[in-house]
Write a protein that binds this DNA or RNA. Structure first.
Lengths: 262, 262
DNA sequence: AGAAACTATGTATAGCGTACATTGACATGT
DNA sequence: ACATGTCAATGTACGCTATACATAGTTTCT
């Protein structure tokens, strides 16, 4: 069964690519190429030259094969990208078994954040059809553990995990593209230079009162070093995550109190 | 000054497109096309056929012009997309002047969420170089207002707003692509069908204990109707946002107590 | 009137994903 | 050992993309 003609029995869509190993053992010559090798090459390309440089021809060239050979192992680039996203995610961090769920979640957040720092292109891989590869699910599992340990029940843990994941993804997407801090180190240490420029140049305080207020306050100084916990999260992430964890903590307390102590 | 040759004085990059009106008043014939008209046509195309159908030729065709005419008004598709993102965002909702900052934030979240529901392609517009158009900043301003009113000081309000925005974006990106709920209404009302299928089919409970636990708990039933507040946010969003707002509230209390009451 | 300036167009190029037909090497059943 | 036929790999071709460049046409200033 080649990948080419497998329109599949409708259900597993792409997932076979991620989970099921190749059916194997048929008659023809053994394939020297594999989905994994292709995806790894793709990751290598994206790492060095970005996602926009990730073309089928480039991958094939990297591996020393012709472009169309790739299509013997994957049905389309779109599906390949799902595999690439999983390979690119890599294995989740080991958070240990501490009973400090806050610390565990913060470490998880820090690891994911660092991952996006190293592989910014992961933020641009279009995630369609819910690509859930082994690695992605492993990350999710590792996050669920401390959340369950904290006292959240099934559904709450799920949406809390979704929330945390969304925060990191969203924050990375938004705040990485600001900055352009790599060239402007003149003034304003953490506030992104572009937005500050826009505000200073074009904004009418009448139209954007809160925005101007915030930026005015921030130019004055006021960069308090409240790194609320000992980790390495940037303030952008840290503040929100900590407030959320505060909220989770008091929620759990309120719920267990309502249900009566065990 | 045509847009074609304006490599620009380095600083305003694209922002001129969004903020500065056309220099206007020169010698040639008045342009009948405009950035706005182009962007509006682009939005129309994306609304009907999605972002992948948004090509320059399609836009030009929609407007009855030749493809290359567009390049008299915008320097590249990439820059156009920044304008499109701002036009597509539309004006922010009016949250009124209630002193209930939680309600205001939740309404803002609901509006943005609804926006992403209507225009899913907005989630895929690559946001590079910090595109801050008038609408985007207006949204930000509207969100900052209740946050400031709640008692957050400058920098905190900024990162809190970033957090909330990131949550909505991230949650929408992740949770919209799951589901495929449009076809499977057999069993499992809210848990996405695909992930459940994967878990049931491929997952070894030894490798993903927390995940299996959560999903097992969710199949049993246990869909409590705790819509914590009276809005129309889905549970996925609602829970996380509410915990965050809880955390913000107690943070503000703790801070003002430390500083002494006014 | 003349000229400068600017919009709109037409043509052409390099690159993309991939459908399709073909080739040739290999593992298998006899 | 051999023939069978399956399948990996290739080459060619098509329609699509963004956009560089040269041209034509129109309007307003000097």
């Amino acid at each position: 069964m080649t990948t080419r003609d497998s329109t599949s029995p409708e259900l597993p869509r792409s997932l076979t690519l991620l989970w099921a190993g190749r059916p194997q053992g048929q008659r023809g010559p053994r394939p020297k190429l594999s989905v994994e090798r292709i995806a790894q090459a793709a990751v290598r390309v994206a790492d060095t030259d970005g996602l926009e440089a990730l073309s089928m021809q480039r991958i094939a060239g990297e591996l020393g094969y012709s472009t169309m050979s790739l299509y013997n192992h994957i049905p389309s680039k779109e599906l390949l990208l799902e595999v690439v996203a999983d390979i690119g995610a890599g294995p989740p961090p080991d958070l240990g078994d501490t009973d400090d769920f806050r610390h565990a979640v913060r470490r998880w957040v820090g690891a994911l954040w660092a991952g996006f720092q190293i592989r910014p292109w992961m933020l641009r891989v279009p995630l369609d059809h819910a690509s859930f590869g082994p690695n992605q699910l492993a990350w999710l599992d590792r996050l669920l553990r401390p959340l369950l340990a904290a006292g959240l029940i099934g559904g709450e843990a799920r949406v809390a995990a979704l929330h945390v994941t969304a925060v990191v993804r969203g924050t990375a997407q938004i705040s990485m593209n600001m900055a352009s801090a790599h060239k402007t180190d003149d003034g304003i240490p953490r506030a992104d230079a572009d937005l500050a420029l826009v505000v200073a140049e074009f904004i009418d305080p009448k139209d954007y009162p809160a925005l101007t207020a915030v930026h005015a306050a921030e130019i004055v100084g006021e960069h308090p070093g409240h790194d609320t916990e000992g980790d390495d999260l940037p303030f952008e992430l840290s503040f929100g995550v900590d407030r959320f964890l505060d909220g989770v903590e008091s929620w759990v307390v309120a719920q267990t109190r309502r249900a009566g102590p065990t």
